[in-house]
Structure formats: C-alpha cells, structure tokens
Simulated assay, not measured.
Amino acid sequence: MTPASAPSPPPSPPPAPPASLPVRVLTLADLTACLDLAAEHGWAREEHKWRLLLTAGRGVGIDAPDRPGTLLATLVLTSYGETHRCIGMVLVAARFARRGVGRHLMRHALDSCGGAAVFLTATANGRPLYERLGFAPVGTVTTLRGTFTGAAPAPAPAGTVLRAATAADIPAILAYDRPVFGADRTELLTRLPAFADQILVAHAPGGRLTGYAAAWPNETTTVIGPALADDQPTARALVARLAAAAPMPVRFDVDPRHPGLADWLRANGLTGDYVCTLMVRGAPDLPGDIDRRFAPLSVALG
C-alpha cells in the first residue's frame, strides 16, 4: 500500500485589515529581521548597506503577527533637506503579498512627507502599486555587474588630477553635490568616508573640483556610486580608477540618459539587463542635473 502523502501546511492566516496593522520605527536591533525578509525575496543579505539605511534614513516596518520576532514588511524613507524624500527597501513577506500591506506601509510613509517631492526606483513588481499612489515614471536604470577589465581606457581630460579624497575635501564635495543632486544630502554624505572603501575627487587645473565618486562593499560586489562629474570623460576616469582597484566584481547602476556610458562599461567586462523604473511623486522629474549625475549612491537612496 502506498503511504498517504503528508498533508500540505496550512496557509498563513490573513493578517488583520491592513489599515489596522501598527507601523513602527526600525532600529539597528531589527537588522537581522530586515536581512531575513530581504533574503526571502532572493536579495543578498546586505548588512553593510542596511546599517547605513537604518542610521541615515528612517526605517519603518510591521511586525509579523504569525511569526514573533520577524517582520511582515519594511520601508526606508530618507530625507534630503525639506524638499525631497527617497523611498527604498519596500518589502512584504511573500505569504502576505497582494493583501494591501505594502500599500498601507507606503501610505504611512507618504503621509509623513508633507509637501516634499518623493522619488524611488521601482521593480517591475512594485511599479503598479506606486502608480496607483500617484508616482509617475521619469526614466530607467540598468544594473551592470562584472570584473572590470580596463580594456576600454578612460583617460581624464587634459590637466585633470584624480586623487583620494581626504577629510579636508568634504566641504567642497558637499558644495559640489548640492546643485548636481538637487537636494541637500549632507546627513548622508558625511557618513560616506566611514561607509565607502574609496572616495576619489577630480580637480581641474587651478584646483576647482570637477567631480567625485565612491566605491563601497556590498556582499559579493563593489558598488560604484555616487558618481558626479562635470562631464562624461571625467566620470569615466573616476569610475575606471575605482573599478580597477575594486577587490570584488563591480556593480554600476547606469542611466541611459548618458549616451555611450553603458556601452563603455560593457566593453570593460560588465554585463546585465536588469532594468528598474525611476519614479517621482509631487515633481515633474528627479531633482538636480542629470548631465552631471552619473550614478546613485544606491538605488535605495538615489
């Protein structure tokens, strides 16, 4: 006789109505729970990045009613002065997907934003929710990864000097970043020296800052970002120098509004076709100057 098959596990009980689920602020004490929820979605356990997000931004979450000590959902809201907010790391446990939990958490975050413009980077799964909440697509970003070969050189413009940044460069970096990024991210960038493995600055003859870029470790890759520069040749030179020194394969999130940049990265060994959508609510476009903004610090931070 064939033994009876084991009964299927019962489905997770539906949570309380989404609007009644309490939302609370997340701290570093919730780091493991955040990593566990990300891993459930197939994401890497990006502890280094999550530490920055939970300290430089405001993480909020919902405790799982069926599994004490775990999280049902997360979201990180990062403020840039009074004018802009960025939303990232919107995650809902798969067993409670499509029950209004993500919408409830997003509404909670948006209610705290006042009149500030809000932007985010949406996956294909998340985009329909964000559109229903009033976000509009304004562009895309493609994630490329690989070992940087240097096969396609990127010389700096004549007279430009690239060097490692020091503490004395921070005021100039902040002054350069503000109009290019389009909002005040002092709170975030002052943490960059402790977060990044490398920060480079570019100077024109006479000492004027013409760009800066950073590289930071993220599990199995070295992420290059932010990268801001007066022009693409300077940006490429900064990226090439950082990538050549990276101890792991490189990740770069490239915006197609920079013609030729993705082709140059691919010629240097990076590959990938994972595309996300840049979306904005309360403004016609992302802040700042796209002609000089070549890479975000992270897609979760802009």
Results as ranks from 00 to 15, higher is better:
residue 63 D to E: 15
residue 97 A to S: 13
residue 161 V to I: 09
residue 233 P to A: 07
residue 12 S to F: 06
residue 3 P to R: 14
residue 210 T to H: 12
residue 224 I to Q: 03
residue 157 P to H: 04
residue 131 E to P: 03
residue 206 G to L: 14
residue 112 S to W: 01
residue 52 L to V: 09
residue 184 D to I: 07
residue 77 L to I: 03
residue 166 T to R: 10
residue 302 G to M: 12
residue 4 A to W: 10
residue 296 P to N: 15
residue 158 A to N: 07
residue 20 S to M: 10
residue 173 I to H: 00
residue 51 R to I: 06
residue 277 T to E: 02
residue 249 P to L: 11
residue 63 D to F: 02
residue 101 V to N: 00
residue 44 A to T: 07
residue 230 D to S: 11
residue 229 A to S: 03
residue 239 V to H: 07
residue 107 R to W: 05
residue 253 D to P: 05
residue 92 V to F: 02
residue 89 M to W: 01
residue 298 S to N: 14
residue 63 D to C: 01
residue 298 S to Y: 09
residue 115 G to N: 12
residue 145 R to L: 13
residue 223 V to A: 13
residue 44 A to D: 07
residue 262 A to T: 05
residue 226 P to H: 10
residue 241 R to W: 06
residue 284 P to I: 02
residue 55 T to I: 08
residue 13 P to Q: 09
residue 156 A to E: 04
residue 28 L to G: 09
residue 137 P to D: 07
residue 70 T to I: 03
residue 63 D to S: 13
residue 259 P to E: 08
residue 285 D to R: 15
residue 188 L to D: 05
residue 302 G to A: 15
residue 223 V to K: 14
residue 17 P to F: 10
residue 52 L to M: 12
residue 192 L to M: 14
residue 250 V to E: 04
residue 130 Y to V: 03
residue 73 A to Y: 00
residue 104 H to C: 04
residue 262 A to K: 01
residue 109 A to D: 00
residue 285 D to E: 12
residue 222 T to L: 13
residue 267 A to L: 05
residue 187 E to P: 02
residue 141 V to G: 07
residue 72 L to N: 01
residue 206 G to F: 09
residue 295 A to T: 03
residue 216 W to T: 10
residue 2 T to N: 04
residue 12 S to A: 15
residue 281 R to P: 03
residue 280 V to R: 09
residue 108 H to Y: 11
residue 177 D to Q: 13
residue 86 C to E: 10
residue 50 W to I: 00
residue 189 L to Y: 14
residue 2 T to M: 14
residue 257 R to F: 08
residue 95 R to Y: 09
residue 233 P to S: 06
residue 57 G to L: 07
residue 233 P to F: 04
residue 234 T to W: 01
residue 242 L to Y: 05
residue 280 V to G: 07
residue 267 A to N: 01
residue 279 M to E: 01
residue 296 P to L: 10
residue 81 G to P: 09
residue 108 H to N: 03
residue 147 T to K: 03
residue 193 P to I: 14
residue 270 L to I: 02
residue 213 A to T: 13
residue 83 T to Q: 14
residue 182 G to H: 07
residue 111 D to P: 00
residue 191 R to Q: 14
residue 52 L to A: 06
residue 253 D to C: 00
residue 144 L to T: 06
residue 137 P to W: 13
residue 1 M to P: 08
